[in-house]
Amino acid sequence: MAVFASVGLLAGAFLLASTASAQRTAESAAAAQSKAIAEGRNHSLYDASKEVSLQGTVAKFTENSTDLPVGAHVLVQTSSGQVDVHLGNPRLLKLNNMTISQGANIRIVGEPVSTNQGTFFLARLVQQGTQVVAVRSTTGIPLGLVGPRTSASNSQAGVR
């Protein structure tokens, strides 16, 4: 996507300080969500308080599975058997340079969730070694294809 990549040159603090200070941030958005959850307005199917940690080895990884839910699946061999885990959008793993290989050690934080397509083990966090990738929100919604903020990538341009 070179068409957009080279334009970080336009970066600049063009926004007025008064409005920039009013912008919602990663922290303020998370705080607002937490407040709403505390006030009982969480209508997600995913209950973070019921999360479990699966530790095991990769018995099989399918980057683009058409099994439900569509997307990346990993079959984790745990000490108590195999668990099929939905990892969400495989492009999010690629974006974070996470490669999942058969036989590798893997840790999944997630939980089984009943949806109108069936009951599935949905991953929120995927860990290999020291690398952890969040694939779902704390409310179980697959995250969008975005990446970590970099100094150049979130340039502020526009109205001034």
Binding site: L15, T25, A26, E27, G147, P148, N154, Q156, G158
Partner: peptide, 8 residues
């Protein structure tokens, strides 16, 4: 307009 700590 995303804030400065928003993910890219």
């Amino acid at each position: 307009v995303p804030g400065q700590t928003a993910l890219a």
